[in-house]
């Protein structure tokens, strides 16, 4: 019973909190650039509005285009369900380990790219091509980060990794320094954040994510936006699980949840602030600097694995 409950909590938390995290980041960005900002609840209002609107679909769209938002949303939801956010006692986590998690992100990426190509406008294909460009480097980079962590836990199962880092005797892992750096770079690239993409503009020269979902509207757009915020949430909690796992409970007892929830909220708020700071202070990269940026992340991940093997720690 406890297991099912813990699983349910770990599915509901991301669904409910993901837009809030996005709103928080946007609000922080606004404050940092001396604007008042729309308030942290804006994404919820946005979703509500979009769901109630009629959906306008291009007359060239095929059934794949209509199916894609659901597939993307579903994959992101499952991704959140297998990352230990509040407790490591997750029945679904045995179905998909770290490698399958990367596979899930890739599945969502491929569907969103295919949907973008489906309409057959220049924007869609441009976005799809750039997204795949980001993806083919970000994906292996994320894998190397996860492998650095799984070498420590001797396991690719996420709960085991978290328990190895958080609940065994305290130790410092130098390889995680590299993995952490690589993860930050991947995090920025995968969530269409500033040095790679800017979620706030629709400029042809630079946009990636927005170019792909340009043709979506109404409930489909709402699902896509929600999925994007779920992705941000998933990456944040993954970062927490790998690098700041203290506070994640082992069993989903009410007491451990009481302890885990505030610590999770605190860490997420912190990540939001850091993310907004990074975005405010860095300039958008030219699109052809992006492969370099991601290749750096990839190689840092490799060096992380190397240091683990070399230092034997």
């Amino acid at each position: 019973m406890s297991r099912a409950f813990s699983q349910l909590i770990s599915i509901l938390t991301p669904i409910l909190l993901a837009p809030l995290l996005l709103g928080w980041v946007n609000q922080m960005r606004a404050w940092l650039s001396n604007r008042r900002g729309p308030g942290v609840l804006q994404p919820y209002r946005m979703l509500h509005k979009l769901f109630n609107k009629d959906s306008v679909m291009a007359d060239t769209a095929s059934s794949l285009f209509r199916f894609a938002p659901y597939a993307v949303f579903g994959s992101m939801l499952l991704a959140n369900a297998i990352i230990p956010t509040l407790s490591t006692d997750l029945p679904l986590a045995s179905a998909a380990d770290a490698i399958a998690l990367v596979g899930l992100f890739a599945l969502a990426r491929i569907f969103i790219s295919l949907a973008a190509m489906d309409i057959g406008t220049a924007f869609g294909t441009l976005g799809a091509r750039r997204e795949m460009l980001v993806g083919f480097l970000a994906e292996p980079a994320l894998l190397t980060v996860l492998f650095s962590a799984s070498l420590i836990g001797q396991s690719t199962a996420l709960p085991t990794i978290v328990e190895a880092v958080a609940h065994k005797h305290f130790a410092i892992y130098p390889s995680l320094v590299f993995a952490g750096m690589a993860f930050i770079l991947v995090f920025l690239a995968e969530n269409a954040r500033v040095p790679v993409d800017n979620p706030a503009t629709h400029l042809e020269l630079t946009m990636i994510h927005e170019a792909m979902i340009l043709e979506y509207s109404g409930r489909h757009l709402a699902l896509m936006e929600w999925a994007a915020s779920l992705k941000l949430f998933a990456y944040s909690t993954l970062g927490i699980a790998l690098f700041l796992p203290w506070g994640i409970g082992q069993k989903a007892t009410p007491s451990s949840l009481l302890l885990a929830l505030p610590s999770l909220a605190l860490k997420l708020a912190l990540i939001g602030i850091v993310l907004a700071l990074v975005e405010t202070f860095s300039a958008k990269l030219r699109i052809f600097r992006v492969p370099e940026f991601l290749a750096t992340a990839f190689l840092l991940g490799v060096i992380g694995m190397l240091t683990h093997i070399l230092l034997g720690a």
Binding site: Y70, A71, F73, G74, S75, L77, L78, A81, L92, S94, A95, A96, D97, I99, A100, L107, Q154, S155, T156, A157, T160, L223
Partner: peptide
């Protein structure tokens, strides 16, 4: 089990359930 596990049916079930419920 501790080291690594992969349950494709669970996996599919998870994705399909999420899609259908959504």
């Amino acid at each position: 089990m501790v080291r690594a596990s992969y349950g494709p049916l669970y996996f599919l079930f998870g994705v399909v359930a999420a899609v259908v419920i959504a």
